[in-house]
């Protein structure tokens, strides 16, 4: 079983971090995993996306072209990748930043106002973690508790203040009901 995940948005939205959290969890679950970022000449801003492949067998191409799961955090990413989601796949998007939805009947579409939720809860910049929580709920990709533990373990001691915030954000996403 192979799951192709594509995370896309602006640089600075924590796309790469979210992808890494998934990749780390997969590795520690004894699964094969690859994480491939897009990279460009700019350090901030611009489009950012990353391909994460989780599998129980050897991973071939690390580039996700037709995702099983697409996480789109801005409109250009939504427009670009929504048509690429494989039939039967899942699309998760930030409906507080993307003012349209998908009319595809062959995929499951989940909107979550992650950026607005983050901002309302004083968790600015943590929409990515909210979306991760939502992803766990929708896909059952990993156990919630195990994922939380792994994600928090990845936070360096110098940023210990972020532990509670991450915990709260993941929980908010997981408990979000459409």
């Amino acid at each position: 079983m192979t799951t192709n995940i594509l995370l896309a948005g602006f640089g600075g939205q924590g796309i790469l971090f979210a992808g890494k959290a998934i990749a780390k969890m997969a590795m520690d679950s004894d699964l094969q995993v690859s994480w491939l970022p897009s990279y460009g000449p700019e350090m901030r801003g611009g489009a950012a996306n990353c391909s994460v492949i989780v599998s129980d067998e050897e991973i071939g191409s690390p580039v996700v072209v037709t995702p099983d799961i697409l996480i789109a955090l801005n409109l250009p990413s939504f427009d670009k990748f929504e048509p690429k989601v494989i039939a039967g796949g899942k699309l998760i998007y930030d409906c507080s930043l993307i003012d349209r939805t998908s009319d595809r009947a062959d995929i499951e579409v989940y909107g979550i106002p992650a950026t607005a939720m983050a901002s309302d809860a004083g968790l600015t910049g943590m929409a990515n973690v909210i979306v991760l929580g939502y992803l766990l709920k929708i896909t059952g990709l990993f156990e919630y508790d195990a994922f939380l533990e792994h994600m928090l373990a990845g936070i360096p001691p110098t940023k210990a203040a972020l532990i509670e915030k991450n915990k709260k954000a993941l929980e908010m996403g997981y408990n979000y009901a459409k």
Binding site: K20, M27, V33, S34, Y39, P62
Partner: peptide
């Protein structure tokens, strides 16, 4: 190549 350099794997 750039992809192998930038990608993460265990």
């Amino acid at each position: 190549d750039g992809a192998l350099g930038q990608m993460m794997e265990p």
